[in-house]
Amino acid sequence: MNTATTMLEQSINLTISPRLAKNIRRNIKERIIEFMLMLAALSAVFTTLSIVGVLLYESLSFFKTVSVVDFFTDTQWTPLFEDAHYGILPLVSGTLTTSAVALAVTIPIGTIAAIYLSEFASHKTREIVKPILELLVGVPTIVFGYFALLFLTPILQKIFPDLPGFNMLSAGIVMGIMIVPYIASVAEDAMRAVPMSMREGSYAMGATRFQTAVRVVTPAAISGIVAAYILGISRAVGETMVVAVAAGQQPIVSFNPMESAATITAFIVQVAMGDLPHGSIGYQSIFAAGLVLLMMTLCFNILGHMLRKKYHERY
């Protein structure tokens, strides 16, 4: 036994020892690679930290000049005027109004399209339409801004002669149509995830397609469908170009879509287009506005993903 081990050791020493040395090199190389890959993965954490860090840093300087109470209660937002006011409410109201119009358009159309696609359309139709929906999700939003300003607004002005050239209605409607493919696609995924056995159970009771879709499949997929809505809301709230082009730039507290008003995003664009000196209160104000925007979308996103996870766990 003992001799055998010694012999084995000897033979290893004789023949494998150079490769053992190589082994260490190999291990080091593997470790370095793993470390570099980890650094790359950490870039996501780094990005998040940078976003939060930059927004907080500039916002803190901003809140040295402006009280937090004023920020959330003042109804005027005029950081670029002599008599400067820094109330975020006008921008929030503009954001919420355009988003509400968008949702009023997108939720009915998106849901109906999803139900149709999942429960009524033939396999072939679905195979063709699904990729087109994905294509539509990728159309740049600036193009939709053009559409809102120069196509839809003139049409709406024929219906409502008092409608200003920049208005939240047109921007909201176009934003809504823009989000339809996304909502339809995500909601349809949720409905397809409902097991076939549940549909069969319903059909076996003599239910029609419509009854099965509305009474069984939709309730079964409801958390996924709501998740689609919420992720859609988050998109509407964070959307920039459509509102920057078509909704106008007056920061007023108004929930009337027929008026022209600025959103948080449109305000940031407006300031960035001007030539504000770095470090001025106006410059800092866009970071404070951005922080509010990030918080709003973050809440929606977390809620949406939690709901999505819930239905993933169930089936």
Binding site: A44, T47, T48, S50, I51, V54, L55, Y57, E58, L231, S234, V237, G238, E239, T240, T265, I268, V269, A272, I286, F287, G290, L293, L294, T297, L298, F300, N301, I302, G304, H305
Partner: peptide
């Protein structure tokens, strides 16, 4: 997951700062 949902304009603010 969260980064995928951050509005693009916020990346602009990150870049600016």
């Amino acid at each position: 997951t969260n980064l995928a949902g951050v509005p693009s304009i916020v990346y602009g603010l990150l870049a600016l700062g």
